[in-house]
Nucleic acid binder design. Sequence first.
DNA 1: CGATTCCGTTACATTCTTGTCACATCTTCA
DNA 2: TGAAGATGTGACAAGAATGTAACGGAATCG
Lengths: 242, 242
Amino acid sequence: MSDPDRILIVEDDRETRTLIREYLEENSLEVRESADGRQMWELLKGWKPDLILMDLMLPGEDGLMLCKRLSVDENTQDIAIIMLTARGDEMDRILGLEMGADDYLSKPFSSRELLARIRSVLRRARTTPRAALPPKERESYHFSGWTLRLSARHLISPDGVIVDLTKGEMILLQVFLQHPNEALDRDRLTELCHSREATVFDRSIDVQVGRLRKRLRDDPKNPTLIKTVWGKGYMLTTGIDP
Amino acid sequence: MSDPDRILIVEDDRETRTLIREYLEENSLEVRESADGRQMWELLKGWKPDLILMDLMLPGEDGLMLCKRLSVDENTQDIAIIMLTARGDEMDRILGLEMGADDYLSKPFSSRELLARIRSVLRRARTTPRAALPPKERESYHFSGWTLRLSARHLISPDGVIVDLTKGEMILLQVFLQHPNEALDRDRLTELCHSREATVFDRSIDVQVGRLRKRLRDDPKNPTLIKTVWGKGYMLTTGIDP
DNA sequence: CGATTCCGTTACATTCTTGTCACATCTTCA
DNA sequence: TGAAGATGTGACAAGAATGTAACGGAATCG
């Protein structure tokens, strides 16, 4: 059997908190409580819930603000949130703000309805994995046994040696990796690397390719990674995706 | 077929080491050896074991201390540890200290028992991933043989020398440790260290990095700890992480 | 308060990157 | 095969980025 879903209640009114807690626990959920944002963050250090029930009105930091922060923080952005409001007319305001909450519920609500919403949100959260949410920038590329790490701006060779790249070399390699197994002429490379036109007798691409080949230990006489397409330009061959 | 489990033996007595090694290798485990803590950290830079067999009495830094450090360091805290003690009566003391070891064994022990314990610990480690455990509060960081103690505001070098840090240096190092192996640009560092915007020609980060490098005995011409990522910023390299 | 330490700023030396050029090689094709 | 054109690459230099000593205001300490 799997672990029960974990719910965190953030609500300043002790009685409401206890009421909700007891009902949820009867329904096989693991529940913890915080009275305000401060306590919540403290608790989150050691315990990660699947869903947070957040009251809108809180002493100290506002529930909306907490909500925003939770969805910005890498460690907490995959926690589902249901906002609770005291009055229905507050709802309009919240909905307009588009904070990161997954559902909203205005008091008074029936316990059954709360439970239903919780199950619904959790189910939705599980079938729509986070990956779909923020379109992350790609941090590393793999090709022919090499690994390119963008942040550290270096390559890791198939045998594990780390090779540093300059900015220009990295951009060039990135461009090749975005067009694998495709011959790119010098004008195109200049455009993609520097967003500028190539001048008349512009050899900078050739030189830069040479420098990159040296880093990749690619013999120009018989290159395996960056091939020269004679009379046209250069091409990165990855082996995969022919 | 999957890779064999990797075991690291940390034990000063060469004969014991060889004996254990041979037995474990006969039983399809990949084994490496270190004679002391210094060697261990060195080895860990390029090779991450699943389990460490740690002798309690070691020249230089104590096995207990190493154990503590291993479980504090993010890069090594998921390595299982079995402590070996020379005499049974030492065991009580250790058990009372609650260092991060997963099992204990007092010499002399039979090879079969050792193997049984290893298999047991590894099995347990695999079914309960460390990641699920509550994240510990950091009061110290360990990296590349160095230890940073936040409360005392000092560093302990791999060979045991204590180096005091100023508040600014400590904050900077802490920031690096929270983003290991990631290039951080000056704006980001300024933001993370001082919660303020960097001014136009702000070189304070450069100067502070220089000061920190001096404390860490890191040669700027060829830094091993804080690397310059040219045109971008700086990066702390921890060795482990691949 | 005076002494000391810390740390941002500045200035200058040094290092690194990269486009350009010259010349050696290579490829193509008449 | 030889000439013309294309590519490879060492050398160079300008400009940009970094390392750091020195200075002085600010913070800390006794």
